[in-house]
Simulated assay, not measured.
Amino acid sequence: MMYPIGQPGRAWSNEERAQWLSRQSVKRSYEQEVLGKVHALEGRFDVCSYGELIYGPDRYPLRALKSRQWSQDRPTVLVTGGVHGYETSGVHGALLFALEEAAEFEGRVNLLIAPCVSPWGYERIHRWNADAVDPNRSFVADSPAQEAAALMRFIARFSEQILVHIDLHETTDTDESEFRPALAARDGKRFEPGSIPDGFYTVGNSEQPELAFQSAIIEAVSRVTHIAPADENGEIIGSEVVSPGVILLPYRKLGLCAGMTDARFATTTEVYPDSERATPEQCNRAQVAAVRGGIEYALTAG
C-alpha cells in the first residue's frame, strides 16, 4: 500500500510532517464530550489539572479524577484512557466507570482516572499527536510527546502507591487501513499487511505478566462482549497468545503507557469497535468490566 505522503524508503522530513498535519481536521469536541463529563463528576471526585497541551493556537487543558477520600494506607488504582485519541471507548469507558462503578470501591482503593490523555488526537480521531508522534510509544525519559510527559509528571507523586494500572485501548480497522501504512511511510519503511482481531484482548507485560490477573479481566469482559481468538499461527497482532485473549509485550522497551509505573498489576485492554458483534455501548461496557475485574482480582491477590 502506497501512502499518499512521502517517498518510499525515505523517512519524513519536516515538510512531509507539515503536509500530514495539514490533512487533519477537527471532527468532535473534547470540551463538550470529555471535559463536560469530567467536571460533572466534581461532586464525587477531586478534578485535578495536570497541565495543558499547546499546539499552535490550540490549547487543551488536561484533567484527571482523584478520589476525595485519599489514604496513604490504601492501594492506588490508575485508569488511563485516550492515550490514542481515536480509541473512543477508552475515553468513555473510563468516564463510565467513574460515573457508575467507582463508588463501590470507595474506602477500598484510591482512584486516579485520566480519561483522555490525548485530546488533540481525540478531536481529530487520530492515533498520533500534532507532531506525528505516537504517545503510546513515548512514555520514556525526555518524552517526545507532550501528552506522555504531562501524565508522567502528574503520576510521579503517586507512583509508589500504585498497585493496579489499567490502560484502555482499541484495535480498529483503521489501524490497518490508515495508521500502520502512515507509520511505515513516516519511518521510511515498507508496509507489511497484517490483520485485525475480532474481539477483546489484553496486552500484559512480558517482564511481569501476572497471567492470572490478565485472565480475570478476560473472564469479566467475556460476560459483556466476545474475546478475540488466536489466528492460524496462534497469535494476535503478531504476538503469541499465552492465555485465551492475552498476549505479552515489553512495556518499558516500547515506551507504553502501561509501563509508566511499577504497578504489580498492569494491563493494556484492546476492544474491537468495528466488529459486527459489538455496539459502541458494549465497547464502553467492556472497558468498565475490565477495570472492575482487574481491581477485584488485585484486591484479592494483593
Rank of each mutant, 00 (worst) to 15 (best):
Q161M: 02
S138T: 05
A182T: 12
A156N: 13
R127K: 14
V164P: 06
D175M: 10
A102F: 03
S138P: 02
G81V: 10
E104R: 15
A156E: 13
E106M: 08
D73P: 00
D134E: 00
E104C: 12
N110H: 01
R153N: 07
R124K: 15
A150Q: 09
E101S: 15
Q69I: 15
A149C: 02
R137Q: 06
R63M: 11
A182M: 14
S143P: 06
A64P: 05
Q69A: 15
I162A: 02
R68W: 03
Q72K: 14
A102Q: 05
V83P: 04
L183Y: 14
V109S: 07
I166F: 00
A156C: 08
H126S: 14
G121R: 07
L62I: 02
F154Q: 11
F158R: 05
Q146D: 01
H165I: 04
R124W: 11
F97E: 10
R127W: 10
G81S: 02
V77Y: 02
V133K: 11
Q146V: 04
E123A: 06
R63D: 07
G82V: 01
V83S: 13
A103H: 11
V109T: 07
N129H: 10
H165Q: 10
S71R: 11
K66S: 12
Q161N: 09
V133W: 02
G107W: 00
P115F: 04
